[in-house]
Amino acid sequence: MANFSPTVRHRRLLQELRQLRGAAGLKQEEVADHLDWSTSRMTKVEGGTLRISVNDVRAMLQLYGLREGAKYEALVQLAKQARERGWWHAYSDVIPQWFQVYVGLEAEASSLRNYEPELVHGLLQTEDYARAVYQAARVMDAPDEIERHVSLRMARQDVITRSEQPMHFWAIMNEAALRRRVGGACVMKDQLRHLVEVSAQPNVTLQVLPYGIGAHAAMLGSFAILSFSEGASEVAYLEYMTGSLYLEKPEEVRAYTLTYDHLRASALDPRDSIAMVAKLVKEDL
């Protein structure tokens, strides 16, 4: 799969358009009037919940005083790329729009920092472990839908295994995620062995947050921080059962970055973490 995401292109485009509008001293209502839009539509466009056509981007650039030239052409090209369909759209029958956004961000992230308290992160899961997770968590889904979810999860792992520009993935997992037997003893032991193997990759770092640490900085739950190499702002991502939150304000991302730094300091170092996982493989689960 190509290291390309229209989702990231779309967010970069909106960031540029907001900055240009601000530099032109225009309010959303003024732009909406000029384009013969409702204010609601303008709000949705800048908020990223409504896609924008290439012609509308051209009209906005003209309004903001950006004439044809290198930057103008670059933003028009960005608008074209933002309207393309990512590979994950082939799975749109089983994943909601809010998660498609995340997969799009993940596909082009240069790095991902994640904390998981309950389970092994999806990018590190074996097929059998992933299947057991979905069978437990999606009790209303038919078997073929479960298999579609598993197939998507396996496809997503390309971001850390691809030969060109693999994502730098730093995963911190609570000890509970390693001791919770998912799918039975054999499935769990295979999963633990897989963690040892994948953590040997130079772009993957694994740490375990042991029970003995007691209270810690992420007691409120899992989260992820995605970073990008092409100028897009960092995103802190939080997921719940029926949706997700994407936090992009600098102060919000800083809060989660600080939390993650505290977790890294509290967790076992990577070498001791892998030793713990390897030891669990030999224990009775």
Rank of each mutant, 00 (worst) to 15 (best):
I52Q: 01
S53H: 00
S53D: 11
V54R: 15
N55M: 15
N55K: 15
M60C: 05
M60N: 07
L61A: 01
L63G: 10
Y64T: 05
G65V: 11
L66R: 02
R67D: 15
E68P: 04
G69E: 02
A70Y: 03
A70T: 14
K71F: 08
Y72Q: 08
Y72D: 01
Y72I: 05
Y72F: 14
E73T: 13
E73L: 11
A74D: 00
L75N: 03
L75H: 02
L75T: 08
V76K: 03
V76P: 05
V76C: 02
Q77R: 14
L78T: 08
A79R: 00
A79L: 03
Q81N: 11
Q81V: 02
Q81S: 11
Q81W: 03
A82K: 06
A82H: 02
R83V: 11
R83H: 00
R85G: 06
R85D: 08
G86L: 08
G86V: 06
G86D: 10
W87R: 05
W87Q: 01
W87L: 04
W88D: 00
W88A: 03
H89C: 09
H89L: 08
H89S: 12
S92C: 12
S92I: 07
D93P: 05
D93E: 13
D93T: 13
V94G: 08
I95L: 13
I95K: 02
I95F: 13
Q97R: 12
W98L: 10
Q100Y: 05
Q100M: 14
Q100S: 15
V101G: 06
V103I: 13
V103N: 03
G104R: 01
G104S: 07
L105I: 03
L105D: 05
L105M: 14
E106F: 06
E106T: 04
E106L: 04
A107V: 08
L112V: 15
R113K: 15
N114W: 12
N114H: 15
N114M: 14
Y115T: 12
L119A: 15
L119S: 13
L119D: 05
V120I: 15
V120M: 05
V120Q: 02
H121N: 12
H121W: 10
H121T: 12
G122N: 08
G122F: 05
Q125I: 04
T126G: 01
E127W: 11
E127G: 06
E127F: 09
D128W: 03
Y129L: 03
Y129R: 09
Y129T: 04
R131L: 01
R131M: 09
A132P: 01
A132H: 09
Q135H: 12
A136S: 14
A136F: 07
A136W: 07
A137D: 12
A137V: 12
R138I: 06
R138C: 11
V139C: 05
D141F: 13
A142Q: 14
A142C: 09
P143L: 01
D144P: 07
D144A: 13
E145T: 13
E145I: 12
E147W: 10
E147V: 10
R148L: 14
R148Y: 04
H149Y: 12
H149D: 13
V150W: 06
V150E: 07
V150M: 06
S151H: 10
S151M: 08
L152D: 03
M154R: 11
A155R: 12
R156E: 07
